[in-house]
Amino acid sequence: MTTRISLDDLDHRIIDRLGHDARVSNREIGREFDLTEGTIRSRLKRLLDNKVIRVAAVTNANRLRNPILAYLWIEADSAADIERVAASLAELPEIGFVATTLGRADVLAMTLVENGNELTDFLHQTVDKIPGIRRVRYSLGQNFIKHDYRWCSLVD
């Protein structure tokens, strides 16, 4: 686990400013906040180096014709397999979220698919081959009412 740094008001303002458009230059943010470009640059470097934020492109899910978010609720063969199963799933590029969980399943993984066939193929050809998986149940998210994509976990 990375050590947590404390964030002050300026850090939060920079994060919020970059939350809706991160292509803005340090100089422009500096002008808006009445601070120097160097102050913004060093603050931003600290936020990035300490993995508080990550700046990256997000593309519209509608690049797919009819995007479905599949929640895969995975049961492992044994308790000892859980972490290994999660690590294997995290390596798959198709999967955007993986966590070990308490409650509904041993592992939750999420993937975006275009239709049922694509999901079936993915489950049979890729997920089923991962050793240690006993059973996969799934629910299909058909319609996003809210999805704040500005949250993430900066692991590794």
């Binding site: 593309t59 993986v98 070990t100 409650g103 975006l112």
Partner: peptide, 19 residues
Amino acid sequence: LFPSLALRVFKYNPEWAPL
């Protein structure tokens, strides 16, 4: 409600969103 709780997040990297 059918809650679960993430114990350890292995990956959470949104590359797409409904923009």
